[in-house]
């Protein structure tokens, strides 16, 4: 269908129907003058005709994407909302229970504990992640253009969370881990990084920062490249120190990028799962039982899908709220660069 309509349309415009667009670029050069004459004569009628022809073809092209959106994004979103009002254990159809899940949620101590643990993880990984990425990006930007160095920093981003978690768990091992041995050597003390209630979340946050730092640093680096160097020259002329220029020039001019990085880290951190699932599985004694881990265990260990959906909905609402607040507070879309 599409093919025929397109053929009609092409024959109407140009006589040599065999001529293909395969060599579009050269043909543009060789037929330059002819083209402009043609274009002027045929443009208005052609474009209106083409617009009509475009629709079926466009629909065909977007069909897979629209299907994917409908089946795997729109439908599950609504279904997720629906399931959160039901009692659902996968094998039997869901039964409507109204607000029962939400009532359970309010009184579920483990949920609130998980929320606290997740928030703790978010704060640690966002604060340290953003700070270290920012400093790294700025230092990189000031002293070198080396793509290799930027590449090296990006390396942890390319490996999976699972591998990052495995190698750090090995390095933090309380008996044979190199970090622990070095620590014992230096301070005489040993720390149960992933095995103690107090250190589990900070250790996980450190692994997460290690994994993502390079990625965010490069995002910030790209932002730095949009700041015209003349501004720094001007700052230097005015006698500003590097630190002053960082605080008074870089940070304000970088605000949109920084806001984006913070929003991204927050959204990612709230959904942390892989590292926890591989290393601590929420332990010891729920000390690292982040929300995703709890949701996963409710759904796939206890098969309480209705309640798991309710918690997912709560997490979703929380993410939306946090994102909007952040964008509001950070005035993300305004840069002082004008």
């Amino acid at each position: 269908m599409v093919v025929t309509s397109q053929d009609n349309h092409t024959t109407a415009v140009t006589p040599p129907s065999g001529a293909v667009a395969a060599t579009a670029a050269p043909s543009r050069r060789t037929t330059g003058s002819r083209r402009s004459r043609f274009a002027q004569r045929t443009a208005p009628t052609r474009s209106r005709a083409a617009r009509r022809m475009d629709l079926p073809f466009a629909l065909l092209l977007i069909l897979p994407a629209v299907a994917g959106f409908a089946i795997f994004y729109a439908y599950p979103t609504f279904r997720g909302v629906y399931l959160s009002f039901t009692d659902f254990h996968v094998l039997t159809p869901p039964t409507w229970t109204g607000l029962a899940n939400f009532r359970e949620l309010v009184h579920d101590g483990v949920f609130w504990h998980s929320l606290g643990v997740t928030a703790y993880f978010v704060v640690l990984s966002v604060v340290f992640g953003t700070l270290i990425s920012l400093v790294t990006a700025v230092v990189l930007h000031r002293v070198t253009r080396s793509t290799t160095l930027r590449g090296v920093i990006l390396l942890p981003f390319l490996i999976s969370n699972v591998i990052a978690a495995l190698v750090w768990q090995w390095m933090l091992d309380p008996e044979l881990g190199i970090v622990d041995i070095a620590l014992k050597h230096l301070t005489g003390h040993s720390i149960m990084f992933l095995g103690s209630g107090g250190w589990a979340i900070p250790s996980l946050a450190a692994i997460s920062v290690w994994k993502w730092m390079g990625y965010y640093a490069l995002l910030i680096f790209a932002g730095l490249q949009t700041i015209p160097p003349t501004i720094y020259e001007a700052g230097r002329v005015d006698g500003a120190s590097e630190v002053q220029m960082f605080r008074r020039l870089t940070v304000p001019l970088l605000r949109p990028i920084l806001a984006m990085v913070v929003v991204l880290t927050v959204i990612n951190a709230f959904q942390v799962f892989d590292i926890v699932a591989v290393t601590t599985e929420g332990g010891p004694a729920n000390a690292s039982n982040v929300l995703q881990e709890y949701i996963y265990r409710k759904a796939f260990r206890q098969f309480d899908f209705g309640y798991a959906a309710t918690m997912s909905l709560a997490l979703f609402a929380l993410l939306v709220a946090v994102t909007f607040t952040q964008l509001r507070l950070s005035r993300a879309n305004e840069s002082d660069l004008s």
Binding site: D7, A21, A24, R46, A50
Partner: peptide, 19 residues
């Protein structure tokens, strides 16, 4: 370039694939 391709008789499918 797209216009040039249209003049040369290419339809949307060809423009998509070849241009």
């Amino acid at each position: 370039i797209e216009e040039a391709a249209i003049i040369d008789g290419a339809g949307p499918l060809r423009i998509f694939l070849r241009v």
